[in-house]
Structures are given as C-alpha cells and as structure tokens.
C-alpha cells in the first residue's frame, strides 16, 4: 500500500541518486579532511598486513581498514584484521586442530593539540591514560577477541 502511494508521489528514496550522492560524499570527505587519499590508505593497509603477517596468519582480502569520524575533529583509523591461528592441544580426542578465527582491532587517531585534548579525552578516558598514537579498541585484555565458541 505504502509502495503504491510512494510511486504516486514519485518517491523512490532507496533507488534515488540522492542516497548515492550522500554515500559518495561521506566517503570522499573523510579522506579530504584527513588528507589521506584512498591509494595512500591502501599502501598503509598493505604495510600493516605485512607486519601482522609476521606473527599471525592473515588473509589480506579480509582486512578492513577504514577512516571514521565522530565529528570533524575526531578522526579514527579503524582496522579490522581477521586472522587464523591453529591450536592443536585443546581437545585430545580430535586429530584435526581447531581453527580459531580471531579479529584484531586497531584504532589510530591523530595526535591532538593541547586545546583539543579536553574534548578528545572524554570518550577515551576510561581506556587510555598515555597519549600514545595507537591503542587497542577496548583495553589490553581484548586486543584479541576470540570468536571460536570453544570457551
């Protein structure tokens, strides 16, 4: 019923080009604001994957690295890195090791000037005491989040 009236009104919000404009603008503006063009982000991603690959097994295709913003001043680089590790001693009855899929979350934010710190500290104060450039998403104990269903 509503669909009929929407057509009568000439409404097609989902398929309209306005939504596409909004999505494209949001993508391009995040890159404009931090001055990191998409190709450069890709280079960064490749290097991050290379480093992580030294320690755990990572499939490059599954790594998601994106810029995110809460508002104009709070930029975050959010990396989601699923990696596979093999554990062979958990269940003595099983011959085949259990694959455990884990995800490493990395969040980076730009160094902040003294005057911006009060605002930026607010949402982070519980997690972060040192002014480092990188941090784990929610404290050290959850740097690795295991989703293996074994625990």
């Amino acid at each position: 019923m509503a669909g009929f009236f929407d057509r009568m009104l000439g409404r097609s919000k989902d398929s309209g080009s306005a939504n596409k404009a909004k999505d494209r603008l949001q993508f391009v503006l995040v890159h404009d604001r931090v001055n990191i063009p998409p190709e450069r982000l890709q280079m960064m991603k490749d290097e991050i994957v290379a480093v992580i690959s030294k320690y755990v097994s990572v499939t490059s295709d599954e790594v998601e690295i994106a810029l995110a913003q809460h508002d104009r001043k709070q930029n975050r680089l959010i990396a989601e890195v699923p990696f596979a590790s093999l554990i062979d001693t958990l269940d003595p009855d099983e011959d085949v090791p259990y694959p455990i899929t884990s995800t490493l979350f990395i969040e980076l934010q730009p160094e902040t000037s003294a005057e911006e710190l009060p605002q930026l500290n607010e949402p982070l104060s519980s997690e972060e005491t040192r002014p480092t450039r990188s941090q784990a998403k929610s404290g050290e104990d959850s740097v690795l989040e295991t989703n293996n269903g074994l625990t």
């Binding site: 009104l9 000439g10 409404r11 097609s12 919000k13 989902d14 398929s15 309209g16 080009s17 306005a18 939504n19 404009a21 909004k22 603008l25 949001q26 503006l29 508002d71 104009r72």
Partner: peptide, 20 residues
C-alpha cells in the same frame, strides 16, 4: 523540493548530516 521528495536531490537533513 519535488526532487528531494523523489530522492533525486540531497535534502537539508542529508547536507547537515554530511557537513556536521
């Protein structure tokens, strides 16, 4: 406004959302 209603033009809400 007719284009906004058809979903073919960014609305004021879209623009303020994008620009914060």
């Amino acid at each position: 406004m007719d284009m906004v209603r058809r979903g073919e033009m960014l609305s004021a809400a879209d623009v303020t959302d994008i620009l914060a």
